[in-house]
Design a protein around this nucleic acid. Structure first.
Length: 513
RNA sequence: GGCCCGUUCGUCUAGGGGUUAGGACGCGUCCCUUUCACGGACGAAACACGAGUUCGAUUCUCGUACGGGCUACCA
């Protein structure tokens, strides 16, 4: 096994939008596969037809694409040597039945004909008898309608009559099951705790337990990565591999710690009150008529989202926190994945996006901001947009904050911050502003350095400290009391626009007086 | 309830038999600054508890507590 090709699969079931926990599982699998020059496969586990949600599969594919963690094989990403990659289609090939039959023949699985009502009765009976863990197992199966209690002829007859049946795993009575997990080390469970899991359902579909094993074997998967919620059923899976004689080919197991809610406890839910999304992309659930916001639509960069996810349960062992996907691939290992669940931190998630925002070039940001300008019917030349981004990005976590932070760059103010006016507007400061306008008029080379110089010269001339008039001057130009570096803004606006804004403001200020 | 997994600042985490227990987010103070932000400096803030092993345990072992997961013909 150790010398064979590294192949990992991400195997979600299309029962809804892909949760960020699922994205992280995909991410870790992707990183490991890429690090070892292996394959990353997308397999769709659609064995539960009652829970199939239309659009979910496409959503999963689009999410992976947006995150930049693309499988090189599988549904939506091109066929590899093990097509098809949808379990519903693989079922048509009869492969699951084949493996189930093998288990039946070797005596490790059996037909069971119990109806839902009978199973329910059994559970009630066991509960009434104060059985600690009611389950279909080595003991209780003796009182049920299955191939271990019925004669061979009876079983044949029932099958011939078309009686609905399932195939169950015949779990031994009292046996220690040991398995190794890359993240957790050795785990030991007694088979008494494992129930006779259904392998083949009455509709002919395999359950997850059978299907994922068959497919992992058939697809030559080297490492099976999944969430911690699967740990309790892992012993049953070990048994299946063993009874199939495939323990040697069994993928190495890695159970990832869960992502927990930011406050309180428990698994991350579909919605969080922090307002940070739980899904990569917008998702609309047709069944419940509920929609969920995505990271993409909330203005997150995919790199930031992926980086944040990577740091949830994994670390490089250094103090580095900002990683490109290439760096992640280089640094990743399952050994450095934590065992304990990680609470999701909305604040830090924003911080990650801010880090990436600050790394983007002004040109790139201007392009990303373009749609917001369109939305407000604003046309400006590229240079202005780039200059705007340069000044505004320091204030923001997201590109979608740019407009509300700096709409005054594009629309000259018609109202002015009343608080500031009340505090700072008086005959002296008004005279100051007028004097500044005159001084600006005379500037040939309208740069930040020149305007600031001129502004300060007025301060000296009128003997008024800049502090008393600076904010008022800012309000005159932008209408609001806060914003980016004032003289830098003037340079971007240019002489003509700046003077026009000053004129407007002076007219307005005079009316106030 | 039973079984499994886990437990270092509020959160993400580093560390690991002897450390001033390190970093990051957030928070606070100060500096920079016309404002806000950025940046910088500083600060408050953690080894769940109890035994055992040991010269010495946050680190190893066992219990306890707490948290989480699982307990379907769902994945």
């Amino acid at each position: 096994m150790s010398d064979s090709r590294v192949r990992l699969r991400f195997a979600p079931s299309p029962t809804g939008g892909l949760h960020m926990g699922g994205v992280r599982t995909a991410l870790f699998s992707y990183l490991f596969a890429k690090k070892h020059g292996g394959d990353f496969v997308l397999r769709i586990e659609d064995t539960d037809q009652t829970r199939y949600v239309k659009g979910a599969e496409e959503y999963i594919i689009n999410s992976l694409k947006w995150c930049g963690i693309e499988p090189n094989e599988g549904v939506g990403f091109g066929d590899g040597p093990y097509t098809p990659y949808r379990q519903s289609e693989r079922k048509e090939l009869g492969i699951y039945k084949k493996y189930a039959d093998r288990l039946i023949e070797s005596g490790h699985a059996y037909y069971a004909f119990d109806t839902a009502e009978e199973l329910d009765e059994m559970r009630k009976r066991l509960e009434a008898a104060k059985v600690v863990a009611p389950q279909y197992n080595a003991v209780s199966r003796q009182n049920m309608r299955n191939a271990t209690t019925l004669s061979e002829d009876e079983v044949k007859k029932l099958l011939a009559e078309g009686t609905p049946y399932v195939v169950r795993l015949k779990v031994p009575r009292n046996e220690e099951i040991r398995f190794h997990d890359i993240i957790r080390g050795w785990v030991v469970v007694n088979s008494t705790q494992v129930d006779d899991k259904v392998l083949l359902k009455s509709d002919g579909m395999p359950t997850y337990h059978l299907a994922h094993i068959v497919d992992d074997i058939e697809m030559k998967i080297s490492h099976a990565v999944r969430g911690e919620e699967w740990l309790p059923s892992a012993p049953a899976h070990i048994l299946i591999y063993r009874y199939l004689g495939l323990e040697e080919q069994m993928p190495k197991l890695a159970h990832l710690p869960l992502i927990l809610k930011p406050d309180g406890n428990g698994k991350l839910s579909k919605r969080d009150k922090s307002g940070i999304p739980m899904f990569p992309l917008n998702w609309f659930d047709e069944r419940t008529n509920e929609s969920y916001t995505g990271y993409r639509e909330s203005g997150f960069f995919p790199e930031a989202f992926v980086n944040m996810l990577a740091m949830l349960g994994w670390n490089s062992g250094t103090t580095q926190e900002i990683f490109s996907i290439e760096e992640l691939i280089k640094a990743f290992s399952f050994e450095r994945v934590n065992k304990a669940g990680a609470k999701f931190d909305p604040e830090k998630t924003k911080w990650f996006n801010q880090q990436y925002l600050r790394k983007k070039s002004d040109e790139e940001l201007a392009e990303l901001f373009e749609p917001f300008l369109k939305e407000h019917n604003i046309t400006v030349d590229k240079k202005f947009a780039i200059g705007f981004c340069k000044l505004i990005k320091e204030k923001a976590h997201f590109v979608n904050e740019f407009w509300s932070l700096g709409s005054f760059f594009f629309i000259a103010p018609t109202t002015y911050d009343a608080e500031v006016l009340k505090k700072r507007l008086n005959p002296q400061t008004l005279a100051y502003i007028k004097e500044v306008k005159t001084a600006f008029d005379a500037i040939q080379n309208f740069t930040a350095v020149e305007t600031e110089h001129a502004f300060k010269a007025v301060s000296e001339k009128l003997n008024i400290p800049t502090g008393q008039v600076m904010q008022l001057f800012r309000v005159a130009i932008t209408g609001v009391g806060g914003g980016p570096a004032l003289f830098e803004m003037l340079e971007l606006f240019g002489k003509e626009n700046s003077l026009k804004r000053l004129d407007n403001a002076i007219a307005y200020f005079e009316k106030q007086g």
